[in-house]
Design a protein around this nucleic acid. Structure first.
Length: 285
DNA sequence: AAGCACACCTGCTAGC
DNA sequence: TGCTAGCAGGTGTGCT
């Protein structure tokens, strides 16, 4: 499931292999992946545009568009969210036929193709020209700070935690609090912070909040360095189809019954805010 | 106001 | 062996 580290890895791939190219043609099939606007509108906004930059905020990804040749036209961006099963893949010639669940194809000016593949069709693409002063899509204004781009403010986190009656798991998953953490990294962060995912956040002490803030930054940075997590069943791969390696460093996620890497007691699995949660009852309080 | 359950999907897996 | 029910989860919506 693409979360911040996976989306960041895809972004870096776009920056390296796609930025600077132009879109020769765009093909949209099906009705699910482009649903905020008519596909014709998206195609018209993209055709002939140069891909100028790749940016990210939480799990949202976008590509800044520029006119080719002539003076810079009105700035617009192509926004993408991979949700559960979305992939952006760059395929160079000779072009294999698009795999099943390929919903959008961008033909680039070097004869390569960027593809949006998404079996579960939760992911989406849209074009917008409504940007804030920092050049971010205005529709994303509700997102909280990005832990990687903005850092984690322990004081703000502590103040938020003090006045909310939710579990730590729910707080970490709330994209208005911090943007980019999903179910997998929420569990890994809780383990690194030695806090149970079910802990009520209003009960956290100052030292515990400090541990939490540090763990958020540490876990996400390590996961980005490992190019994200590719699970057995999940289909996350980077722009060129390469798997990540952070799954080899998971302490708790998907490891129910296996020994805790710190104390050897079996990892427990439970259910919290409708999600699976994994933790060590001895190491996490 | 804020927290919660549910819908949206398809592929995989456990269990019969 | 073959079928099916259940599970996986990010976000938006609607209910309590």
């Amino acid at each position: 499931m693409p979360e911040l580290p996976e989306v960041e890895t895809v972004r870096r791939g776009l920056e390296r292999f796609v930025v600077g190219r132009s879109m020769r043609e765009v093909f949209v099939t099906g009705t699910r992946s482009v649903r905020r606007q008519h596909p014709d509108e998206l195609v018209a906004a993209l055709r002939g545009r140069r891909l100028d930059a790749a940016r990210r905020w939480g799990k949202y990804l976008w590509i800044a568009l520029a006119e080719t040749g002539a003076s810079p036209g009105p700035t617009a961006v192509l926004v993408c969210h991979l949700r559960m099963s979305g992939q952006l893949l760059k395929v160079s010639p000779p072009l294999a036929p698009p795999p099943p669940h390929t919903h959008v194809r961008f033909v680039l000016d070097d004869e390569s193709e960027l593809r949006f593949v998404d079996p579960r069709t939760f992911g989406e693409l849209f074009v917008t020209d409504e940007l804030d002063q920092a050049g971010r899509p205005a529709v994303l204004a509700g997102l909280g700070p990005d832990p990687l781009l903005d850092g984690v403010d322990a004081r703000r986190l502590g103040e938020l935690a003090a006045r909310r009656r939710v579990s730590l798991k729910a707080l970490l998953l709330d994209q208005k609090v911090l943007a980019g953490i999903g179910n997998l990294y929420a569990d890994e962060i809780c383990f690194a912070a030695r806090l149970r995912p079910g802990r009520l956040v209003s009960s956290l002490g100052r030292a515990e909040v400090a541990r939490l803030a540090a763990a958020i930054g540490d876990v996400l940075a390590a996961a980005v360095a490992a190019r994200g997590s590719t699970l057995r069943d999940a289909r996350y791969v980077d722009l060129l189809g390469e798997a990540g390696s952070y799954q080899d460093h998971h302490a708790v996620y998907g490891r129910a019954g296996e020994p805790c890497p710190r104390c050897d007691r079996p990892i427990l699995q439970t259910r919290l805010v409708g999600r699976s949660a994994h933790y060590c009852a001895r190491c996490q309080r």
